Simulated assay, not measured.
Amino acid sequence: MKTSASPQWLQDLATARTHYEERFGWPVSISIVERQLAMALGQAVDAITMPASLAMKVQAQLRIAMLAGPVTANPDGTCWTFLTQPAPADLVTDLPDVRHAGTHAVIPTDGMGWRWIDEPGPRHVLPPAQAVVATARRVLAAQQEF
């Protein structure tokens, strides 16, 4: 019986998955079709997505309040995703361009397109989703005043 080694990209994803699971305790899985890591949302971690132009301002405000957490950017950099503590599904229903990320979030790995804006820290607590959304509301309200 002949066995073949798994492709290098799969080995790299398996190594990255182990890193995220061991370091942060996140429920990370390998998506073979997309060749990327994905994390189930809703139990231990949730995610809020918004346009990068808004997200930059939100993350800056969260840093000032010492509530900034890990943030990813999609491959073209137009949308950022904030990883948060679990959130109610209806938290962002009234905000244009701000949405709950759904059931899964892509976790960046080398060479896969997605990237970290702010990487997670080993003992850093994820921010409450309410803090991210409240900050987005404040930034949007300030923009409407001008």
Rank of each mutant, 00 (worst) to 15 (best):
S4V: 14
S6G: 04
P7H: 03
P7D: 01
L10H: 14
L10V: 02
L13K: 10
L13Q: 07
T15K: 00
T15H: 00
T18G: 02
E21L: 04
E21S: 08
R23G: 01
R23H: 09
R23K: 06
F24N: 07
G25P: 10
W26A: 03
S29W: 01
I30E: 06
I30S: 05
E34P: 07
E34S: 12
M39G: 06
M39H: 06
G42V: 06
A44S: 13
I48K: 03
I48F: 07
P51H: 11
S53N: 09
L54S: 08
A55D: 03
Q61F: 06
R63P: 01
R63D: 10
I64E: 14
P70L: 14
V71H: 01
A73D: 05
A73K: 13
G77K: 11
G77M: 07
C79L: 15
W80D: 00
T81S: 07
T81L: 00
P86H: 05
P88T: 05
R99W: 09
T103M: 04
T103W: 02
V106C: 07
I107R: 04
P108R: 14
M112Y: 11
M112G: 08
G113H: 13
W114I: 10
R115S: 13
R115Y: 07
D118E: 13
E119P: 13
P120C: 06
P120H: 12
H124G: 02
V125G: 08
P128K: 07
Q130G: 11
A134L: 13
T135R: 01
R137K: 15
R138V: 07
E145I: 12
F146T: 13
